[in-house]
Amino acid sequence: MTPKGVSLNPNSRKTKFARRFLCALSQMRNPRPVSSSNDEEVRKRSHKIKIAAYLSMARTVGSRRAWSRALLFKLRTRARRHNMMIGRRSLCLKKKRVIKNDPQGELSQTNKLRHLVPGGKTMDMCSLLEETAHFVTCLATQVKVMQTIADHFDK
C-alpha cells in the first residue's frame, strides 16, 4: 500500500490515462438523452468512446510528442467541425475511411506506417520510427487499460 512512488512512477501514464478515460466515459452520457437500444446508437457511441480513448491518451502524453500533437489537433478540428455541422460529419468520416482503406494495397510500407501513426505524413523516416515506437507503447497501455475496464464492467 505504502509505496506510492514505486507504484506511481512506472505506471504514471497508465494511471493517468485510466483516470482521463473514466472521466470521459462518465461524461459521455450527459449529451446523450436516450438509452442506447438500436445498433446505430451503439455504433455512434462506440465511435465516441474510441475517440475519447485516443483523446485521453493523447492528453496524457501531452504535446511533447509529434503524434499526440497531431492527434490532438485532428480531434480538435474534428470537434469544431462537428459542432459546426453535425450532418456532414458522417460524410467526412466515411470519406476518411475510404481514403484509409484504398492506398494500403499499393503504397509502400513506410507510407502505410505514415497513415497509421497520427501526424506521420509530415515526418521524415527517423522521427517517424521514433514516434511509432512511442505510439505503439502508448497504444499497448491504452488497450490494456481498456481491456481491464471492459472486463470489469462485463461482470
Partner: peptide, 20 residues
C-alpha cells in the same frame, strides 16, 4: 492494436448504461 481499441470501445459502448 487499433482494432483492439475499436473492439473494446464497442464492448464498452454496449455495456455503457451500466458503466455510467
Amino acid at each position: 492494436l487499433q482494432r483492439q481499441v475499436e473492439l473494446l470501445s464497442m464492448r464498452l459502448a454496449s455495456v455503457n448504461p451500466r458503466v455510467d
